[in-house]
Every structure is written in C-alpha cells, then in structure tokens.
Design a protein around this nucleic acid. Structure first.
Length: 926
RNA sequence: GGGCCCAUAGCUCAGCUGGCUAGAGCGCACGGCUGAUAACCGUGAGGUCGGUGGUUCGAGUCCACCUGGGCCCA
C-alpha cells in the first residue's frame, strides 16, 4: 500500500477573495459610495474631454410618486448607452431631468389642502406648495435612479420649474409667435359651472347619469332630390342627450358610407339611417309608418341645408364624419362644435363656426335665443317643451349612460368652447416642415417613423393653453382697454429676462408695468394698461422646449442631441412636442436619432396594474436580487417589443448572472499569481491558446457591433453564450489540468494565464455598461498590475479585437476539432452509463474520422486532442469503409492504460515516485 | 371604432431577400465529478412556429381574416 500523499498542496489551485455569492443588495451601495468619492461621472467626462461628443438627452419623468418598472427600464437603457459611449471614448454627458409642472401635482396638492383652505390660498402660495411637492419627488426619484447604478449629473439636473428652464419657454414661444404660427381660437373643454373652472381629462370622473333623450326633426330647406316627388315636408332626424346644446347647432353629421332612407310617418318624411329605423320606430312609438324604397348614402346628402332647430332664421349644413355610430340614435348626429370634442374636430374640417352661447356660470347669453338668461340645466325641459310646440320634437324620454363629472363637486360637467392659444400646423407650413425634418432622423426601430409620421400628418392644431395655476404662463399681454393681444420683441425679451432672473412665479406677483419696458403700449388703441395672460402653457410644450432650455443652455450639451430615448407613448408626447417646437422655432429636428422601447408587461404580456395584482416594483427587485439583476434583465430583453417581467424571468436572469459571476471568479482565481510581465507572446503560445484569443477577438467584434446597433439583448446573448459554451464548457475545462498541475511558472501555464488575463480584461469591459456594479467589483478584485493604474472599470476604455494572421485557419481547424469533441463526449457518456468509466480521464479514445477530418485532427497531434477531450489518451485511426461517409468521427472508448496519477488524476505510466512524468518533474522542482 | 406594433420550446432569444427532419443557452430529467463546490462537466426529453384560409412545387418567413396582447387616439 502506498501512503496517501496530499498532492493538493503541490498544485496551483484557484485563489481569490472574489466571493461566489454576490450579495448585491448589500454590496452595491458600497460601490455607489466608491464612485461617489471618485466622482466617476466627472472623471469619465474629463477622460474624454477631447473625444467626439455624444449627447443622450434625458426625457423628464414626472416628479410624483416612486419609480416603477417602466421608468427603471428606461433609465437603465439610457445608462447602457451613455456608459458604452463613454468607454468608447465619447464625451457623453448625461443630465437627468424632471417634469415638475402640471395638473397631477396641482391636483394632488389641492386634494391635500382640502376645499376650505383651497379657497383661501393665493395662487403664489399654491405654486409654492406645488414646488415643494415636485422637489420632494425629484429627490426621491433621483436617489432611486442612482441606486440602479444610473450615472449622470444628479448634482445639477434640469427641472422644468427652474427659472432658466422657464425662460426657455418664452424664447421658443416668442420665436414661433414671431413666425406667425401662434393664434387665438376657441376649443371646447370640460367645464364645471359650479366650480367655475376648466377641468383636465384627469380631473374628470365618469359615472352613470340619467339624461334626457330626445329625437328632433331638422327640416330641410328644400326637399332633397330622392324624396322631392312625394311633395311632403322632409326632415333629418337627430338624437341628442343634451337639449341645451341645440342653440349652438350648426350642422348634422352623417356616416359617409351608411345607407339612409326616408320614412313616411304622420304626413311627412324623416330621414335617418336605415339600420336604425326599426329601433327608432319602437322608441318613438310609430305605429303607422312606411319606409320609402330609395336608399341614399350619407355622403350623397352632404352639403344640403336645413333650418336650424332654435335659431330658425338660420340654416345648418349636412356633413359627414367617421364618429357617427350606427348602433344607437338615428345615424344623424346633431353637431355643435362649441360643445363637443368630435363636433369641434369635424366642424374644423368643414369650416363650421363654433357657437358657444353659455357663460362661465352655465347661463345662456343672447346667443341662447329664446332661452337667454336661463341656466342650461334648467333650460333642458324648457327647450324640450319649446321644440314640442314648434312641432319638431319626435320623441322625448330619458336614458342612462356614462357621463363626465367634476372631481371636486361630483356634479356633471359640460363641454364648452373657450378662448385658447393654438399652434397652427399649416398656417406657416409647420406640418410639412416637421414631416420633412423627421426624414433626416434615425428612428429605432424603423417603424417608429410611421407612428410619429401619421400623428404629425393627422393631428389638428396644437392647443397649447391650459386654465391652471401650476405651470409657465403664456407670455403675452392683453390691452385692458381694447382687449388686443400685446406681444412684441420687447415684451418677450422682458418676460424672458423676468423668468430667467426671478422665475415664472414673478408673473403672478408683479404687475406688467414693473418689468415691461417703459412706454409699452397697445399697438391698436395705444392703451398703456396691460394685463398678463392668466393661462399657462401645455406641459408638453414645456417639456418639448428642453432642446432650448437644456440642450442649448448648458455648455456641455448641444442641439440637436445625438439621441432621445423613451417609451413608445412618447411618439405622441415628448418626441412630437420636441419636434414641433424645434422645427417651429429653428426649422430643425432637436435630435439626430430617436430610440423607442416597448412597455413593461407581466409574464403573460399583460400590463401591470394594481387591480391585476401583477405589479413588480424595481425597488423590491433591487433589495431581493440587486440592481445588476435589473440591469441584466434590461439588457437581455428585446426592447423593440413590449418587455415582460415576472418572478420566473427575474429568477432566470439571476441564474444567468451567477454563471457570469462564477466565470469571473474562476478567471480571477487562476490569475492570482500572474501579471502582464509574465505574458507569453502570441506566436509562442500553444495552438489552443491562440485559438482562444481568436475566439475572444470574435466576441469583442460581435459585441461591439451589437452595442453600435443598439442591440443590447444581442450583447447579453453573445457574452453569456461565450461564458457558458466557449469558456466554461470548453476552454476553461480543458485548461484546468495545465493551470493546476503544470509548474506555476511554466511556459504552458503562463501562456494559459496570458489568455485568461486577456479574457478577463476584455469581458469585464464588455459587460461594464450592463453589470456596472459587478464589473467594478471584478476590476477591483484583479491584481493591481492587471489594472495598470486604472481606478475604475468605467475608465478602462474599450477592448480591441486583435487581427491575427492565422485566425481563419484556426477557426476552420477548431470547427473540426469541436465536432470531434462532441462525438467524444457522447461516446464517453455512453461508456459512463454502461458503468465503464466515471471521470473522462479514465478513458482512452480511438477516434476514427474521414480522411479530410483526420488530417485536421492529426495536425493538432494526439496529445493536444487528449488534452482538449480531457481524456488520458487519443489514438487516431482510419475510418472503416462503412464509416467513411459518416460526418462526425466515430469514437471508441477504452479504459486508459497505466494507472491513475495521484496528483493530476490522468492515467499514465507511473514512475518510481508513483507519479506521472509531468507531475514528478513538477513536484521534484518544488 | 381608428393608427402603429407584437405573438417561434417552461424562460430569454436565433431563424437574411420563402427551400434540407425549426436552432441556441438557460430551466427541467437523468448521470458524472468532488481540486470553480450554495460550483463544475455530460447526455436527454420538450415547439409544427397564436388560429383559419389563401398565394406557391414548397411558408415560421408573403397575403387576408380571426383570436389574444401592448401603446396612442376615438
């Protein structure tokens, strides 16, 4: 019996302090402190001071609430872009921003305040509360974004409530105004006559309401052709639930393509959609009626005139629209552009006037005709009676339907046109210019341009005014004497200066005379008393002008930005408002490229909502898995579609992370005693090592290309597969014998370490934009000589794929070798299942390959093949006739000859010391 | 109801301009190893490509419709 010797001590086993368990949740904050002390954001900028500039311009999230999966995804994606560009040598500043104005914050503050205190508070005080509210959440979100590893100028972000930002609004508005694309018009909005206020869509609560339901005849001025022969009065029959809007009627909208018929009833003819005759007859209680045979398309009736229902001395016109429903009503829609959104839009298209005879209190003015002075609600029954007297009422009943209510007083609201400010899409050719400008932009993914294109092509004029408190005022004045708008280069300059120095709050505290140049007067009547406009600007306009307030204003940025990157909802939102304001003021798109991503959905592809109970919070993921897992999930997802997240997905991501982490750990462990001065030159390396470097170079090329094409999930895939397939399953597995058993300072082991150092150095940088924390941990765990004085992986630059003269030959040869290896592992598995072997080193393989392959294998040498197959010996044999055609080599497993070397576990002839020759030499030299 | 988009194994992804028995990794099952060990190695079983119809000699890959889902409108 030989005495058991512990040869383990004589081997070079991995040694590293880099822990297998990541403990990201606790360790990541330490790296955040490390970067903070390093001032890594500024260091990255300084390092690239002379590099090309790449500006990713942050779209400002709304400053309320905590971050959610969508904002986390967006910010991490941006961070990948910025960190990659920075490592590539670009000067890549990233200034995060927040959208601080707007109705949701104002609404929340008002709710917190309560109705009593709300009545007391001044606009200035209300604005101060809104500001506090916004600032609180800017702080909350900034901390949360940074926890995700997002790097940027969080010490000096841009906020839409900053004076300098507010001034930018004036600058852009002024330029667009000067160019003649801003005008005053009217547009219907939700209005609560009890609270005497305009309401935003978000302030509307929908609830069931019982309304009047009336059918009314509008008499044609001349009997339309199809029914003229009957020689009876002909009317079009409409249905409405708001009798009080009839005084504002100017048109009747029909469905262009639907069939309309005349119904003879009670001695006259009423026209309505054929599909609705039966239901109307039932409701109206027609017993004796007759549908005339002639059918007419709605479009054929367009242009006919009828006598207005209330103002019977005037006429209205028949038009067509796509919003006409054929499931309820009559298929003929009473159209009052002053009192309905769709009516307004269709009215615009047909050039109908927008009558609005109702004042702030909901009372008819003179435009109400016989109902002037009456409140609309009280007028309803009166109007119905009046219509009955006129003989135009066909039926009056009630109906229950969903109707908008005021969130404050919970009472029904009305729709009512008011004076608003608009940006004209066509008066100065803004639409065409915008369509043109978007052609010069790179849209990722490509279909993205279709979406914004159709939006810009179809959109109505942009209503940019809001009747609210928390925002930036429309920077114009009205003459108190004559009502004329006063807005000149001088007043704009004064307001811009006012905002820049004191903020928009000053608008609500000072009188115009205090900041306008002396002598500013109304151009029409010469009046010198001016009133500041009380409306504020649409928040989309506000965020849109960041190209001016931020890109142009900050020295490190520029307009146009290289990239805007947001969720696909921003085609309608920020992308569009930025495009329109930039083209409007500068004839130029604000961005060179726009990247959009999908929305975050659950594992079944459904949107996240509290009611479905499928919401996952990024903060929970951070504390359970760590920010790097979120980052890896972001990188692994194809953002051009909606992106799923679920416990399973995160669990899988986490497993993938562990695999990558372990790969780094193995590399670090085997480089403990290595430094660059010990490196073996490429041309002196064993072939396998050269192949490994070629393969590494291929990875670098592939990954770099993927980053450049914004395909992060390809980056992830490539790196992960490389770790698993190339390294773990092949190269590293093969290398263990050499690394552990050869002499520590041997050429063969140093060669392997040279490769491992290259792999470590390259891969850690390839993943640094994604696994920012872990890459830093790896970097700091590497021996100092390997880091060469670079204090952070994020300052380490980008790896270069080296060109190797023998690369093509090696790729071809190793294609054959790896195919043979596959055949070998299969054969070994069979032998294992048959109980013939355990470890592969117990085997000796006879490999029979077709001549071409055998030549390739022979050129590597049997010893090299044994090393690569991790067996004790390989014998190459000619294939039998029957095997000659086979693609993969045939492999026969036999027991290895010799005995198991107690040190390296290969089966060899053992010497006097009971060791194999290699181990004997190594041990005796110790 | 409209515009844009999506739908390949349990998961994440490949499948270019239509052409061999639809691929990868993970997960899973089984096995090995115990010198990457809350690791590592191997083998294997899983999709007929959301559905229907069509174009074609041939379709996951083109067309139509449908179903389900997402964003934005209405």
């Amino acid at each position: 019996m030989t005495e058991k010797v512990d040869y383990k001590q004589t081997m070079n086993l991995p040694d590293t302090a880099f822990p297998m368990r990541a403990s990201l949740a606790t360790r990541e904050p330490e790296w955040l402190r490390f970067w903070d002390e390093l001032d890594i954001y500024r260091r990255c900028l300084e390092a690239n001071e002379n590099g090309p500039v790449f500006v990713l311009h942050d779209g400002p999230p709304y400053a309320n609430g905590h971050i959610h999966m969508g904002t986390a995804f967006n910010k991490v994606l941006k961070d990948l872009v910025v960190k990659y560009k920075s490592m590539r040598g670009y000067y890549a500043p990233y200034v995060p921003g927040w959208d601080c104005h707007g109705q949701p914050i104002e609404h929340q503050v008002e709710k917190d305040l309560g109705p009593e205190r709300m009545k007391e508070i001044s606009q200035a005080d209300l604005r101060a509360l809104c500001r506090d509210y916004a600032m609180r959440f800017v702080g909350v979100q900034a901390a949360e974004f940074q926890r995700l590893g997002v790097q940027g100028d969080f010490d000096d972000p841009y906020l839409t409530l900053n004076p300098a930002y507010e001034a930018g609004n004036v600058k852009v508005f002024a330029e667009m105004y000067r160019r003649g694309m801003v005008y005053r018009g009217s547009k219907p909005i939700h209005w609560c006559y009890r609270c005497k206020t305009a309401l935003a869509e978000a302030e509307i609560e929908y609830g069931d309401e019982t309304s009047h339901s009336i059918y009314v005849k509008f008499r044609f001025t001349d009997a339309p052709e199809p029914w003229a022969a009957e020689d009876l009065p002909v009317s079009v029959l409409i249905w409405t639930t708001t009798p009080w809007t009839l005084p504002a009627n100017v048109g009747v909208t029909l469905a262009d393509d639907a069939d309309y018929v005349g119904v003879k009833v009670a001695g006259e003819i009423v026209v309505l959609a054929e599909a609705l005759v039966e239901s109307v007859a039932g409701i109206a209680g027609w017993e004796d009626y007759h549908v005339l045979p002639t059918r007419v398309k709605g479009g054929a009736l367009a242009g006919l005139h009828y006598v207005l229902p209330v103002h019977t001395d005037g006429t209205g016109v028949i038009i067509t629209g796509e919003h006409v429903e054929l499931s309820t009503g009559t298929g003929a829609v009473h159209t009052a552009p002053g009192h309905g959104e769709e009516d307004y839009l269709v009215g615009q298209r047909f050039g109908l006037p927008s009558l609005m005879p109702v004042d702030d209190n909901g009372v008819f003015d003179a435009g109400g005709g016989p109902f002037a002075g009456m409140h609309v609600e009280k007028a309803n029954p009166v109007i119905i009676e009046w219509l009955r007297e006129q003989g135009s009422l066909v039926h009056a009943g009630t109906t229950s339907h969903s109707y908008p209510h005021c969130w404050r007083c919970k009472k029904p609201v009305i729709f009512r046109a008011t004076e608003q400010w608009f940006v004209s899409m066509d008066a100065t050719g803004l639409r065409d210019a915008a369509m043109q400008a978007m052609k010069g932009v790179e849209w990722v993914p490509g279909w993205s341009v279709n979406r914004i294109g159709s939006m810009v092509a179809d959109r109505p004029d942009w209503c940019i005014s809001r009747q609210r408190a928390w925002g930036v005022p429309i920077p114009v004045f009205a003459c108190v004497a004559c009502g004329e708008t006063v807005a000149t280069d001088e007043t704009f300059a004064a307001v811009e200066h006012l905002f820049a120095t004191e903020g928009a709050d000053a608008w609500f505290k000072k009188k115009p005379a205090e900041y306008l140049p002396a002598g500013t007067a109304c151009p029409r009547c010469g009046g010198s008393e001016l009133k500041a406009e009380s409306d504020i600007v649409d928040v989309w306009f506000e965020s849109g002008v960041s190209h001016t307030s931020v890109l142009e204003a900050r020295p490190e940025l520029h307009r146009p930005a290289e990239l805007y990157l947001e969720g696909s909802d921003q085609h309608r939102g920020w992308f569009q408002s930025a495009l329109l304001t930039s083209v409007g003021a500068y004839d130029q798109a604000p961005f060179s490229a726009v990247l959009t991503h999908g929305f975050i959905v659950d594992g079944d592809g459904r949107k996240m909502s509290k009611s479905l109970g499928n919401v996952i919070s990024p903060l929970d993921v951070v504390s359970k898995y760590g920010a790097d897992i979120i980052r890896l999930w972001v990188a692994s997802s194809d953002y051009s579609q909606d992106v799923s997240v679920s416990d399973e997905i995160l669990e899988r991501t986490s497993e993938a992370y562990r695999r990558i982490r372990n790969t780094f750990r193995f590399l670090l462990g085997n480089l403990a005693d290595f430094e660059p001065s010990l490196a073996v030159p490429y041309d002196q390396m064993p072939e396998l090592d050269r192949y490994a470097l070629v393969s590494l170079g291929d990875l670098v090329s592939r990954v770099t290309k993927a980053y450049d094409e914004w395909k992060y999930h390809t980056v992830y895939r490539a790196v992960y597969d490389y770790c698993v397939v190339e390294l773990s399953a092949f190269y590293l597995d093969v290398l263990k014998d050499r690394l552990y058993a050869d002499a520590a300072g041997s050429h063969s082991r140093r060669s392997a370490q040279t490769v491992l150092a290259a792999v470590l150095g390259d891969v850690v940088r390839l993943v640094a934009p994604v696994l920012s924390f872990t890459a830093e941990e790896v970097w700091q765990s590497a021996a100092e000589p390997l880091r060469d004085g670079v204090v952070s992986v994020h300052l380490a630059g980008w790896p270069v794929a080296e060109e190797r003269a023998d690369a093509a030959d090696l790729r071809a040869a190793y294609g054959v070798v790896l195919a043979a290896r596959d055949a070998a592992t299969k054969a070994l598995e069979d032998a294992r299942n048959a109980g013939e072997i355990g470890k592969s080193q117990q085997a000796r393989l006879r490999v029979r390959a077709v001549p071409a392959d055998r030549a390739v294998l022979e050129a590597r040498g049997a010893e090299a093949l044994a090393e690569m197959f991790i067996v004790s010996a390989v014998v190459l044999e000619p294939a039998d006739d029957g095997e000659a055609e086979a693609g993969a080599p045939r492999v026969i497993v036999e027991a290895a000859e010799g005995e198991k070397c107690p040190r390296c576990w290969n089966w060899r002839e053992l010497g006097a010391d009971d060791l194999c020759a290699r181990c004997s030499t190594v041990v005796s030299a110790l």
